[in-house]
Simulated scan of single mutants.
Amino acid sequence: MFNNIPPITRNIIIINVIVFIVSYFLPQLNYYLSGYYPFSPNFRSWQIITHMFMHGSMIHILFNMLTLWSFGPILEERLGGKKYLILYFLSGLGAFVLFNLWNFYEIQQLTATLINSNVNVSEIYAKADLTKSNFDFKPYINNEEALKLYIGLVGKMVGASGAIFGVVAAFATLYPEAKIGIMFIPVPMKVKYVMPIVIVVSIFLGISGNGGGIAHLAHVGGALVGWLLARSWKKHLYRFR
């Protein structure tokens, strides 16, 4: 059955699984390959791509790969390998960009508040460097804004969810009448109704800060890119392949 999956989708799944297994035995890879806020001392340029292949748990990677297996093959056959690959990685990049644009806004707000309170923000940035062994955050433990800034600088973005949301959004654009099943809802719903609901909920959770450790705005960024690409390609799918 696995051999029947189109090659790009199959290889993306294989790479994700391999990276997950290797990072389990080499946990230091979680530092080097996960995605950090671009102005964090922990950020490296390659993380823009590598974060898409990192996952935080077995459930995380299982859910993502099952979703990709469900929607990816149809789109790969419809779009062709080149467009499908562009869709996948640009959606992942869109997820990284939107998530970190919101991070930038929040961190700028925190920074301004801390500076007005005469807190040494540079010192917090220095303490957020995970390569340093002399970590000591005790002086700021009772400062909520300082703690939030520190968490923003050391927090990791991992997973293929942004890229996969782009794939699902493209599917919804090309096959709006298709019905899909959703957890906790026994009746299949048309994907053209499901996606807007998911996006609105993701925006609310991402902005409100009630995301439960999930990068909801990354999902929105990936979906936005997937929708834009599929919409621009829709009229010319059979003209350019």
Rank of each mutant, 00 (worst) to 15 (best):
L114D: 08
K235M: 01
A215W: 00
S45W: 14
F204Y: 15
E106S: 12
S161L: 02
I86K: 09
S161Q: 00
P176I: 03
T9M: 01
S57N: 07
I61Q: 02
Y32E: 03
L205E: 10
Y150G: 04
G221D: 08
N142K: 04
N118P: 09
T9Q: 04
L205S: 13
S45Y: 13
L75A: 00
P73D: 11
N120S: 04
H236T: 15
I124K: 01
A95I: 02
V225R: 02
A128Y: 07
I124E: 02
I61Y: 06
V220D: 13
H51K: 06
K82D: 07
Q47I: 01
M65H: 02
A146E: 05
I86W: 07
L174V: 06
F184S: 15
I48K: 09
W69M: 09
F39E: 09
V201D: 11
W227H: 07
A178P: 01
M65L: 14
I182L: 15
D129E: 11
A215T: 00
F63T: 14
G211F: 01
H51L: 00
A172V: 06
F184A: 11
I13L: 10
M1D: 11
F71S: 11
Y238V: 05
W46E: 01
S117P: 09
Y150E: 07
I164F: 02
W227F: 15
K127H: 11
I74Q: 11
K235E: 13
I48C: 10
S208L: 08
N30Q: 15
G212T: 04
A215F: 00
S161F: 05
V154N: 03
L90D: 01
Y31A: 06
T113H: 10
E123R: 13
M52V: 00
L174F: 05
L224P: 04
F104I: 14
K179Y: 04
F165I: 02
T173W: 02
W69D: 03
K190Q: 15
T9Y: 08
F165G: 05
G92L: 09
L85Y: 12
P139F: 08
I8D: 03
A170H: 01
I59G: 14
N143T: 06
S45K: 14
V119E: 10
N210C: 12
F184L: 14
M189C: 09
A146N: 06
N210W: 15
V225Q: 02
I74V: 12
Y105N: 10
N143I: 07
